[in-house]
């Protein structure tokens, strides 16, 4: 009975939380399919036969370079993701496996990186990018986001790598497997769930970021989705149809990536390794 109550209360809390988290998204998506008048008349209503409209989508696709923004966002996110995961896993492996001088200092440095928000350094970053002639390039964004994502990713992955049984690595060493191969053929496959988790952590803030695109790459060819949407937000009039449609479209890729990655999350891969 006690157990049952606990289960029910836990689920209630979780359901309420889910509802709170999902409601804004539902509002965005449902209103994106409504006419402008209907959005204002009853924002909470679902699109019905007489309020249904795809005007927002057609406007977004016709007026703006939505495809380009989309590709830009996707490029920045995916390239950053690849860089962060590769470098973070390698750094985490080095930090947790090898005893070398300066290891502690490096570890502390990365920990500080988690605590200090990268936006504090915006001015210097901008100066740096100007000096390197990288403003209005996607490269600038990728570099900044990689730096932003690395510390936490290293921290999480190091925890997981430390849990890989020592015997496994030793067995591989006795087998004559080189350190590089131990990393790619044994360590990486074993921390796949952790890598997927980190990927989600890293990906979402990048996809949603408005700050750095606005400052580093606001130019025509390098706008990301979040920036692109802003052209429908006016000082006096906001084209809600278009804004909501654009946001709806922007949800799709993150959702897709999340679905792909989340399948990795729950798996315990070390089962059967030892004992």
């Amino acid at each position: 009975m006690q157990n049952r109550l606990t289960t029910i209360s836990v689920h209630t809390v979780l359901l309420v939380y889910t509802a709170i988290a999902l409601l804004p998204m539902l509002l965005i998506v449902s209103n994106a399919f409504k006419s402008r008048r209907a959005i204002f008349a009853d924002p909470l209503a679902l699109p019905g036969p007489d309020t249904f409209s795809l005007k927002g989508f057609s406007k977004v696709l016709a007026v703006s370079d939505f495809g380009l923004y989309f590709v830009n966002s996707l490029t920045v996110t995916l390239v950053t993701l690849a860089l962060v995961l590769l470098f973070a896993a390698m750094a985490a492996w080095a930090l947790s496996e090898y005893r070398f001088r300066g290891r502690l200092v490096l570890g502390v440095l990365f920990a500080v990186g988690i605590m200090v928000p990268i936006r504090l350094g915006t001015v210097s970053i901008l100066e740096l990018m100007v000096a390197l002639d990288l403003t209005n390039t996607l490269t600038a964004l990728i570099l900044v986001y990689t730096a932003q994502g690395l510390p936490l990713a290293i921290f999480i992955l190091a925890e997981f790598i430390a849990q890989i049984p020592k015997d496994l690595k030793d067995a591989a060493r006795c087998d004559g497997v080189g350190e590089v191969h131990i990393f790619f053929s044994i360590v990486v496959p074993l921390i796949r769930p952790a890598i997927a988790t980190v990927a989600i952590f890293v990906m979402v803030p990048i996809w949603n970021d408005l700050w750095f695109p606005l400052i580093l790459s606001p130019g025509e060819g390098t706008q990301t989705i979040t920036l692109g949407v802003q052209q429908f937000v006016g000082q006096y009039v906001t084209d809600w149809n278009a804004v909501l449609a654009a946001l709806t479209l922007a949800i799709v890729p993150v959702l897709a990536l999340y679905l792909v990655l989340s399948r990795q999350l729950v798996r315990g891969l070390t089962a059967g390794a030892v004992k």
Binding site: P165, D167, L168, D170, A171, A172, R173, C174, D175, G176, V177, I186, P189, L190, L269, T270, A271, G272, A273, V274, K275
Partner: peptide, 19 residues
């Protein structure tokens, strides 16, 4: 290095590659 010693070791925990 271990590999160059031409030895093979069997661990108490077996240490099989799980994947």
């Amino acid at each position: 290095a271990p590999a160059a010693r031409r030895i093979a070791m069997v661990f108490q925990s077996y240490a099989l590659y799980p994947h």
